[in-house]
Design a protein around this nucleic acid. Sequence first.
DNA 1: CAAAGATGTGAGTAAATGCTCAGGTTCTCA
DNA 2: TGAGAACCTGAGCATTTACTCACATCTTTG
Lengths: 196, 196
Amino acid sequence: MTSHQPRKSAQQGRAKATMAAIVEAAARLLETQGGARLTTNHVAELAGVSIGTLYQYYPNKEAVIAAVLRREKAALLAGFEDIIARGLGPKSTIDALIDATLAHQYTRPRLALALEYIEPELGLLVEDHARDRRLVALVAQVVIEVAPDADARAAQDLVAICRAITNTAAMSGETDPTAIAPRLHRAVSGYLGLHA
Amino acid sequence: MTSHQPRKSAQQGRAKATMAAIVEAAARLLETQGGARLTTNHVAELAGVSIGTLYQYYPNKEAVIAAVLRREKAALLAGFEDIIARGLGPKSTIDALIDATLAHQYTRPRLALALEYIEPELGLLVEDHARDRRLVALVAQVVIEVAPDADARAAQDLVAICRAITNTAAMSGETDPTAIAPRLHRAVSGYLGLHA
DNA sequence: CAAAGATGTGAGTAAATGCTCAGGTTCTCA
DNA sequence: TGAGAACCTGAGCATTTACTCACATCTTTG
């Protein structure tokens, strides 16, 4: 049973920087070459550390990729929590969540795509799925205020819809988020039945 | 420059069956183990042919996977064309297209998922993207009748939406297409602004 | 400062994997 | 029926790749 957790945690600042460099190198390789061609030796080289150092912190290749995934998902989740903490009205909150999703996805579009495609091959841990559910739960909590018959499935659908439109747009070469935002808002309010 | 086209075409029936067996074996491995763990030796073994035979027809591993992808996409496209040929009204046609998409995706959900995730790593040929555009164009052609301001992007969004909802549902363990269909219809008519 | 611990190195290994090739078997057709 | 074409075989090569380990260097702490 191979775990995808880091092998040990860095104690000195130097080691923290090393781990971060490894994760960032993996991210860069993911967005330039995709997951199939990513090798641990390559990651170490790009990170400027030896292969031995990589394996000191990450027990296997999947753990490195999982670390990238967690870094990105944690950032998105944090953004969501920030927005909700602002305590805007439900409609404004939903709008903000959509924009945050779009911004997050478009900051590094090729990375977001690669991660999306690699995730199901990764056999993630329970805690990772828990984070996903938490994100969906956050959305559900807001959505229910404007559409009382919405449930967790509806929230899941909405997240999936936003990601799909954004990814497809990015993949087909659209480079302007401004052109995508209205489509996301339309899709969401359409799904929820919020006419005008 | 590696091509993903078959190396040569089968002339005898026996060879046609061999090629089909290889493609089906690859499909089975895709849905049971995902793309990362699929090896050509494994495909040949499961197909009941020797590795040499596999490479007689497919120049490399990607060509085998691309063949699976083409088989599935061709089936979906054919279904779409059938529906449109029926000449129903635009609203009924759209409903039928949605149901066809759902059925196609749920016939072998894990295969559909794996293919979706492997496609961008595959560097497909021009002709393959042409098929995608044709499918989108078919949708656009119908959609424009009920929503005159819709364009190819809208059609692309709609296809993406349907796939995303279905995939996410399948991935989160939903096994009942009946529960998914209404959500697809709602998402589509919501996006198009058709609130009955 | 000196010891102990934390961190980093990189050549090397075992295994997996894509793919070839020399030669066999089955089919077609005059 | 026999010769050529189409089809199939599978041992094995060359390469790639995940990962280890014995050792070196840096950092902290008593």
